[in-house]
Design a protein around this nucleic acid. Structure first.
Length: 211
DNA sequence: TACGGAACTCCGTTACATCA
DNA sequence: CTGATGTAACGGAGTTCCGT
């Protein structure tokens, strides 16, 4: 359909609304009838049998409603009547539009919230994987370190005066261990290992020594 | 204070229009 | 023609407010 035709149809519809303001509410019961309302039934061929119905609001009406919705999502009675009279709609239509708009807004908001949470969840999963890998690596290193300690202590059994422990300890007192080396603070109970792929900054190194 | 009714909300659903 | 999608409108249940 062309734009001109669209405009023509819209104009026609607007005129129609002004001429028959009650048309779209004819199926709506009065407030007192609320409790005896029945489920709507299919109305096959209703539109083709001369009983014209306007299903879509005009662009102008929607724009005006959107503007009002942007200001305030809730709709007080006075405001509803005002908007309805401004747009030539039934107040009930305005109320229904706001209700549906709130529902759309809510579901959109939920979708956005879901997307955000999904991103956070994905990054947490990645971090968890990384930490699990790190734990495995550290366990391996710990096992190696324990083996090395055992080996050194076995060797030191014969040479007590010049033990590797004391020499390692002396080395630590002078220089921090290079990456991939063992360090010892206050004896064998505090042997630690600096992996080659682990960056330890000067500050962190200081904390290690403060332990 | 308790109660009933009007008027509102939300949720789920239905009916219809439109489009690919 | 048909299925998917968007949206106006409905039905029901719950809540709030107000008069009696």
């Amino acid at each position: 359909m062309t734009t001109a035709m669209n405009q023509q149809v819209q104009d026609h519809m607007e005129l129609f609304t002004h001429m028959y303001p009650g048309l779209y509410t004819q199926a709506m019961p009065e407030q007192g009838e609320a409790k005896v309302r029945r489920r709507r039934k299919k109305s096959k061929g209703e539109s083709s049998s001369g009983c014209a119905r306007k299903r879509k609001l005009s662009e102008e009406q929607v724009t005006h409603l959107e503007l009002n919705f942007g200001n305030e999502h809730k709709l007080e009675s006075e405001r509803k009547d005002k908007i309805a009279s401004e747009l030539g709609l039934d107040p009930r239509q305005v109320a229904v539009w706001f209700q549906n708009r709130r529902a759309r807004w809510k579901s959109k908001k939920l979708e956005e919230e879901f997307s955000k949470l999904k991103i956070v969840h994905e990054s947490v999963v990645v971090e968890k994987c990384r930490l699990e890998t790190e734990v495995l690596t550290l366990k391996e290193q710990l096992s190696d370190a324990e083996k090395e300690i055992r080996r050194l202590s076995e060797r030191s059994d014969g040479v007590s005066s010049n033990s590797p422990t004391s020499s390692l300890s002396n080395a630590v007192d002078v220089d921090p261990p290079f990456f991939g080396e063992f360090g010892v603070v206050d004896g064998l109970d505090n042997v630690f290992y600096i992996p080659e792929n682990n960056y330890v900054s000067g500050m962190e190194w200081g904390y290690l020594y403060d332990m």
